[in-house]
Amino acid sequence: MTETVLETVGLTKEFDGFVAVNDVDLELTQGEFRGLIGPNGAGKTTVFNLISGLAEPSSGSVRFNGKEITGLDPHEITSRGMALSFQITSIFPELTVRENVLGALHSGEALSNLLSRYGTDETKLDRVDGLLAQVDLDVHVEKQAGELSHGDRKVLELALALANDPDLLLLDEPTAGLSASETDTIKRLLAELRGTVTIILIEHDVDLVMELVERITVLHNGQVLAEGTPDQIQADERVRKIYFRRDH
């Protein structure tokens, strides 16, 4: 049996009487690549916030790597091996690209290295530069992150999420606002990650999702409408009705 990395049971979030996420059950096994799709306002980002601790569920629970994490602070959850990349690019603009990733890598042990200089640990530097080479940002290592193009910032955002070798990666629209060639870069990176880490991908580009993931969960009005392989989802009448209507 493959191990369950993430399990949500009856996950629900209410804002002033409006139910944004309603009784969502998700189960992801190790190495799974899951697509999370649904029309605007379906509650996709809220689901991410509930899993990562940015918002507290009104009811329901989240288990990560076999342990209950509901109600923990975001930093406690992420330091257990969960990483999140935000829909709106979230990097450290005045730090260099290398410092960005180095900072991501330090978490958990910064205090115990109080007497050292950051950026002098060779193994860490190798890891940082290796990761930056993997995502094609190695030419920009000394540049301030704020000077990067929008596409490169998105890539850096992904690198930050990858820095600590997470067990679970939550990606919220990593290709939003990117050009076709930039989207291809992200797509290639995601394809390389397939199988090595458990991923949930929120993405508006349905073709991209269909191409990359093994299973898809469709959210509609905060509820799970359907779940299955890309083929099953594409064939599902209810999904076609709300989601593919315009295209098909």
Binding site: L102, G103, S107, R117, Y118
Partner: peptide, 25 residues
């Protein structure tokens, strides 16, 4: 110049991001 100093600057730049990287901001 220590790793802690880097965390200080990360907090200045983007508190939310630092938190989501596992730092107790």
């Amino acid at each position: 110049i220590s790793p802690v100093g880097l965390v200080f600057r990360m907090i200045r730049e983007n508190e939310q991001r630092a938190r989501m990287l596992g730092y107790n901001v």
